[in-house]
Design a binder for these strands. Structure first.
Lengths: 111, 111
DNA sequence: CTATCGTACTACGCCTGTCGTAGTATTAAT
DNA sequence: ATTAATACTACGACAGGCGTAGTACGATAG
């Protein structure tokens, strides 16, 4: 059974997360489920990968965290909001992806 | 200037090298130049990356090395030949790439 | 009323491919 | 005589992904 290798996806987890944050702020568990459903169950991000991506991206200024003030559901959550730098980074990654795809496909069977 | 990040290409260097070995055995320097030209100068593999890929792939049984017996050009070279396991691995990586591409593109702008 | 499941994380440390730096040796060109 | 191109090897750092484990709360089931 073919599955997505971590070596390929490496560096693109951030991009996927940022994509989901483009529309509205979100938090770990929700992002995780969205990645799973958007990828049609083909990719499930590991919890540790996800949370370390948040930490890294906050340190890099691509996202900002804030706490769930309201707490109507009783569970504490840390939400993340994409920053302007995050949006710019996302755009760069999209361009990089297109270039990478172009190159890699020259080495894939049937071009 | 957008360039290919090592995080993206990680794990696909092997695939590119194997692709070039499909037709005929080759050696480091030649592979390096072929990757550069086939990618239209868009990707230049680092020497250390290339040679460590050879070592790793030989250990994994994807390639076999042999020495240049003839030596008409006076330079010692280590040639690599793809094995059956290497061909199978290449096929798997192609399938994996197609899956990965499908998934990643759901998270790239303009779908 | 007790146990399990789903939610929502944090901590720690290993693994592996990539890459920077450096060095060696031969041949060809200037 | 020196530089450039060829053809590597050695060593160690780095970073992202991931395995394992643990915490804590609420809801649901038996």
């Amino acid at each position: 059974m073919i599955s997505i290798s971590s070596d390929v996806i490496r560096g693109y987890n951030d991009t996927m997360i940022l994509y989901l944050l483009l529309e509205k702020p979100s938090y770990g568990y929700e992002i995780s489920k969205q990645i799973k459903s958007l990828s049609e169950e083909k990719y499930v991000i590991k919890e540790t990968t996800l949370y370390s991506a948040f930490t890294r991206m906050e340190k890099n200024g691509y996202v900002e965290s804030f706490s769930d003030e309201d707490m109507s559901n009783g569970k504490k959550r840390t939400y993340y909001r994409i920053t302007e730098a995050g949006r710019a980074y996302y755009q760069e990654k999209c361009a990089e992806w297109n270039l990478t795809k172009e190159v890699v496909e020259k080495f894939i069977e049937g071009n």
